[in-house]
Amino acid sequence: MTRMHKARPLSMLMINAWRWGILLALILLWEAGSRMGLIDPFFFSSPRQIWDTAVIKWQSGQLWRDIAYTASSTILGFLLGTSIGSILGLLLWFSRRTALVAEPWMIVLNALPKLALAPVLVIWFGIGFSSKVVLAFLMTVIVSIMSAYSGVQTVDPALSTLMISLGAKRRQIFTRLVVPSAMPSIITGLRVNIALAMAGSIVGEFIASDRGLGRMIVYAGTTFDLKLVWVGVVVLSIVSVLMYAGVVLLERLLMHRWSARKPE
């Protein structure tokens, strides 16, 4: 006899409890392992030591300055790379010839390990803020061009025919059909782009910088201050998660406007 299994509705409360529970358990195990000598506190530190170091750095104002520095270069690079890249990708709709010429270039530039350019960029733009922004920009711009262009290619030719039959001009077809059609592709790329921009900024700071979380981690590593390295890693993770959450929020707002279906 076949037995029908009814799927039980998932409780978000329970899922969230599990998520936070796992995190809490890991922290407790880490702390306990460190205190009981199962983990070497010199190499792996402990949640308590990381917390204390973070509080000292926060109170001195240094941690906050480093967070602000890394976050602002990441966000600026992300915004510039995504917006300029998306606009360029969308504009390729106007010229098939340009798009065909540009396509292999985009593939090559996308495959190029941009992070390898970091030392060159630091020499070109100096050890200050601009070299980090340029690296974050380079990390995102080609991906954005490709996302927007692939969105442009998804435009339904029948919709173009309809717009022409309604007497739409080329500019109107671009703004009212091509751009909205490509928006889901562009929006989907945002999550990837924020992570790439963050990687660009951090590597820029690793190479040469006088501020930022990346510089803090490198500096702490070279002075064997592994507690501070862990502070950098943990804070960087938190900043990354917050930025990711911000992008998800932005994605929802944009999808609400551009997707086929209204979000629930």
Partner: peptide
């Protein structure tokens, strides 16, 4: 183009627009 009202087998409604904004598409284009 634009001298006739052309309707195809596919409805070709723009999915990101409301019904209202779809039915006035031609007007707003002009």
């Amino acid at each position: 183009p634009g001298m006739t009202g052309y309707m195809l087998q596919k409805d070709l409604l723009l999915p990101w627009r409301t019904v209202a904004d779809n039915i006035i598409l031609s007007q707003t284009l002009h």
